[in-house]
Measured scan of single mutants.
Amino acid sequence: KKYAKSKYDFVARNNSELSVLKDDILEILDDRKQWWKVRNASGDSGFVPNNILDIVRP
């Protein structure tokens, strides 16, 4: 599994996007496009722009 940390707050604008808060740790589900599909600690998933994410190295 790959993880990323959010650098900023992001508010979803539709139901395919995921609202995240700065410093959230997110599991990366799909990173093939500019919007990555991620899952948060609550189990919710959706798309966020990859420019707000930093890859977390294990």
Rank of each mutant, 00 (worst) to 15 (best):
V38M: 08
S45D: 09
L29G: 01
Y8W: 11
S16T: 10
K37A: 07
D23E: 12
R57H: 06
D23K: 05
V48A: 04
N40A: 12
R13M: 05
R39W: 01
G43P: 00
F47G: 04
D24E: 07
V48I: 07
F10N: 05
Y8H: 15
N14L: 05
L53V: 08
Y3Q: 04
L26H: 03
K22I: 06
N50I: 11
R57Q: 13
W36C: 11
D9C: 15
N50C: 12
W36Q: 06
N51T: 13
W36M: 09
K5I: 07
S19G: 09
S16G: 12
V48N: 00
F47R: 04
S45R: 13
L26A: 01
R32P: 03
D30A: 06
R13V: 08
P49C: 04
K33V: 07
G46S: 01
I52G: 03
S45T: 11
E27T: 06
R32Q: 14
L18S: 01
D24C: 08
A41N: 12
K5G: 02
K1C: 04
S45C: 13
Q34Y: 10
Q34F: 15
N51C: 13
K7T: 09
R57L: 10
K37C: 10
K2N: 15
I52W: 06
R39H: 01
K22G: 04
P49I: 02
A41Q: 13
W35L: 14
D44S: 14
K33A: 11
I28S: 00
S16R: 11
I25P: 08
Y8G: 13
N14E: 15
G43A: 05
I52S: 04
E27C: 07
N50A: 13
K22E: 07
K7D: 08
R32C: 12
L21S: 15
D24P: 00
N50M: 11
P49Q: 04
K7M: 12
V48E: 00
L18V: 07
K2F: 07
K37F: 14
F10S: 02
S16K: 11
P49K: 04
V48W: 00
L53C: 12
R57P: 15
P49N: 05
K33W: 08
Y8E: 15
G46C: 01
W35V: 14
L18P: 00
V20H: 01
L18W: 02
P49L: 04
D23N: 15
Y3G: 01
L21E: 12
A4H: 03
K33I: 09
G46W: 00
A4V: 11
R39G: 05
D24V: 05
D23V: 01
V48Q: 01
S6D: 00
V56A: 12
R13T: 11
I55W: 11
V38P: 00
S19W: 02
G46H: 01
W36G: 02
W36L: 10
N50W: 06
I25G: 03
K2V: 05
E17Q: 12
D54S: 12
R39S: 05
D9P: 06
W35C: 14
E17D: 08
V56D: 15
L18R: 01
V20A: 04
P49D: 08
D24H: 07
I52Q: 05
V20I: 10
K5D: 01
S42M: 04
D9K: 09
F10R: 07
K1D: 14
N50L: 09
V20W: 00
K5Q: 05
Q34W: 10
E27P: 00
D30P: 02
A4S: 10
L18G: 01
G46V: 01
S16C: 10
L18H: 03
N40R: 09
E17N: 06
L53S: 02
W35Q: 15
D54C: 07
V48K: 00
E27N: 03
N15E: 14
D24T: 15
S19A: 07
Y8M: 13
N50R: 10
E27I: 07
P49W: 03
D30N: 08
D24N: 05
V38Q: 00
D54F: 13
D24W: 02
A4T: 14
N14Q: 15
S16V: 09
D31L: 06
I55S: 12
N51P: 07
D9V: 05
K22H: 07
N14P: 01
F10P: 00
N50Y: 09
S6Q: 00
V11R: 09
K7F: 12
E27W: 04
S45H: 03
V11S: 08
R32H: 13
N40H: 14
K7G: 06
F10A: 02
K1Q: 15
I25N: 03
D30T: 06
V20D: 00
K7R: 08
E27R: 04
K33L: 14
R32E: 14
K22C: 08
P49T: 01
D23Q: 09
K2D: 04
P58G: 02
S6N: 01
K2L: 05
L18M: 09
N51W: 08
P49G: 01
R13P: 04
W36P: 09
V48S: 00
R39D: 01
W35N: 12
K33R: 12
Y8L: 13
N40G: 07
R57M: 12
D31Y: 07
D31T: 11
N40Q: 06
I25S: 06
D30V: 07
W36K: 09
L29E: 08
D31A: 11
V20N: 03
P58L: 04
R39C: 09
V11W: 07
A12Q: 07
W36S: 14
Q34E: 13
Y3F: 15
W36Y: 07
D24R: 02
D44M: 14
Q34M: 12
K22W: 01
N15A: 12
P58A: 12
Q34A: 13
V48R: 00
N15Y: 15
W36E: 02
Q34C: 10
D9I: 08
V38E: 01
K1W: 03
K37I: 04
R13W: 03
A41V: 13
N14G: 11
V11L: 08
L53G: 06
K22L: 03
D24L: 01
V48G: 00
N40D: 10
I28M: 04
K7L: 10
I55V: 13
S45P: 07
V56Y: 15
V20K: 00
N15I: 06
K1T: 09
S6E: 01
N14V: 06
N50H: 14
V48C: 07
V11Y: 07
I25D: 07
F47L: 08
N51I: 09
A12K: 08
V38A: 09
S6Y: 00
Y3N: 05
G43S: 06
R32K: 15
K1V: 05
G46P: 00
D24A: 09
Q34P: 14
S42Y: 03
I52T: 04
R39Q: 10
S19C: 07
Y3R: 03
L53I: 15
S6G: 06
K22S: 06
S45M: 11
D31F: 11
S19H: 06
A41R: 13
K22P: 02
S45W: 11
K5M: 07
N51D: 10
S16F: 12
L29M: 10
V48M: 03
G43R: 05
V38H: 00
Y3T: 05
S16P: 07
D9A: 08
R13Q: 15
V20R: 00
L26S: 01
V11M: 11
K37W: 08
R57S: 13
Q34T: 11
V11K: 10
K22Y: 04
D24M: 08
N51S: 13
G46T: 00
N50D: 14
A41L: 10
G43T: 02
L53H: 02
R32N: 15
R39V: 10
V48F: 02
K7W: 04
K1M: 09
I28C: 05
A41S: 14
A12V: 02
N14W: 04
D30F: 04
E17H: 06
S6M: 04
D30G: 06
D30I: 04
N14A: 14
A41E: 10
K5P: 02
K22R: 09
N40V: 04
R13G: 09
S16W: 07
W35E: 15
V11C: 06
R57N: 15
